[in-house]
């Protein structure tokens, strides 16, 4: 256990990143795909009503992007606070 590092700052940065990602995660699935689906359905994406597209396609693509974005950003934070693995 290393206390010379800013463990508190590291954790704060981590939670900040998590909050940002979870807001997007919530908006695309529960927001566009469920709660506001009727509003989004007024817009069309090709043959797809947009709300239906978010529920059946779009949120999945965005989830993938979110995880890789998270993995990359966490790597940056790890190095910034010097807690990365060797």
């Amino acid at each position: 256990m290393q206390h010379n590092h800013d463990v508190h700052g590291y954790w704060k940065a981590t939670l900040g990143l998590l909050t940002k990602i979870m807001i997007i995660w919530f908006m695309v699935s529960f927001g566009a795909g469920i709660l506001f689906v009727d509003i989004f359905n007024n817009i069309h994406l090709g043959g797809y009503p947009l709300g239906f597209w978010f529920a059946h396609q779009g949120s999945i693509y965005i989830f993938i992007v979110l995880i890789f974005y998270y993995a990359k950003k966490m790597g940056d934070i790890d190095r910034e606070f010097d807690v990365h693995e060797d």
Binding site: I21, W25, H56, F63, L66, I67, Y70, A71
Partner: peptide, 28 residues
Amino acid sequence: IANMGYGGGLFLMGWTGGYVLLAMLLAP
């Protein structure tokens, strides 16, 4: 999904969205 139509999307979102939680909250 064929039976349920749009509502079947809950399986699609539910069984994929959990990976975001898993990756960020538990796995590492």
